[in-house]
């Protein structure tokens, strides 16, 4: 098969809404604890992009688009934000009881084009596209990328207001509360794309601790027509779940859209 034919097939495959193969690297947020009690609860969250979960061995995760939503729906300011070589880190004071959502939501664009017979690539924010790509460029292919990386922590009694989706991009709506997960029990979640059920999407579930075992031990599940999927946790620990889809619903003209979602959850022993 020639290189051109391969590229054509890849381009054709990405037109409709379909699952995309997992990325080589995994982006994650890892809270120091997810279930807390007491009057002065804090968590430290590590944020990194790595191969093995949950070891910081590749890149620190950019925190430019970090936000934290408190149980009352208001933004919580992260404290002690720092970026190291392999990980970023920040603290969250859980001043009120309830469930907090920690998220890094990235929105950007990616383009490939030809200029004077040479292949070029461009990456940036969607609104910089017009100036980023030369006017005389040809064969312009644009992808809009929406990525969401999340984790949840609860102080005291779990609350549910923070679990509501924003209605933009690919999101997970917990049916089972994400801070009430126990080994051997089944948990149910829904994936939504722009607030609508994301059906037929593959979700990869990977337990942490990869460095000390030979097999990935991942589970793949597919969402049903209501976007729902379930996981029965084989054992306690942190898990990473991710999914991504492509469609042509980009707000950018003639662009493909790639949506990805990743979440870290903690499963407690019985």
């Amino acid at each position: 098969m020639t290189k051109h034919l391969k590229l054509a097939l890849i381009a054709a495959a990405s037109v409709s809404l379909l699952a995309v193969p997992a990325q080589a690297h995994r982006a994650w947020l890892l809270p120091s604890a997810t279930v807390l009690s007491g009057t002065d609860a804090w968590v430290t969250v590590d944020a990194a992009i790595s191969n093995d979960l949950f070891y910081f061995e590749h890149h620190a995760l950019q925190l430019d688009n970090l936000s934290i939503m408190g149980p009352d729906g208001k933004a919580v300011t992260p404290e002690n934000v720092a970026k190291g070589r392999f990980r970023s880190t920040f603290d969250v004071k859980l001043a009120e009881p309830g469930t907090y959502k920690v998220m890094v939501v990235n929105h950007g664009a990616f383009a490939s084009y030809k200029l004077d017979g040479q292949n070029k690539r461009w990456r940036g924010k969607a609104d910089q596209l017009a100036t980023g790509i030369p006017a005389n460029a040809t064969d312009v292919k644009i992808s809009e990328t929406q990525g969401r990386i999340e984790s949840f922590v609860t102080s005291g009694k779990p609350s549910t207001d923070t679990l509501k989706p924003t209605g933009t991009g690919l999101e997970m709506v917990p049916v089972t509360h994400p801070n009430n997960l126990f080994a051997g029990e089944k948990a149910t979640f829904r994936l939504v794309l722009d607030g609508q059920p994301a059906s037929g999407v593959n979700v990869e579930v990977v337990p942490g601790g990869i460095r000390y075992r030979d097999k990935l031990n991942d589970t793949k599940v597919t969402t049903d027509e209501s976007g729902t999927f379930s996981v029965t946790w084989p054992g306690p620990g942190y898990y990473w779940m991710s999914a991504s889809v492509r469609d042509d619903k980009s707000k950018i003209k003639n662009a493909q859209r790639r949506n990805s979602y990743a979440v870290t959850v903690e499963v407690l022993p019985q």
């Binding site: 279930v35 807390l36 009690s37 007491g38 009057t39 002065d40 609860a41 005291g156 009694k157 779990p158 009430n180 126990f182 407690l268 022993p269 019985q270």
Partner: peptide
């Protein structure tokens, strides 16, 4: 002091999920 002993109540994790957190 300051009722800080409540920090470890969640370590009784089955009690915590059933009733403690309420």
């Amino acid at each position: 002091k300051d009722n800080e002993g409540t920090k470890w109540l969640k370590d009784m994790r089955q009690w915590w999920r059933r009733t403690g957190r309420e």
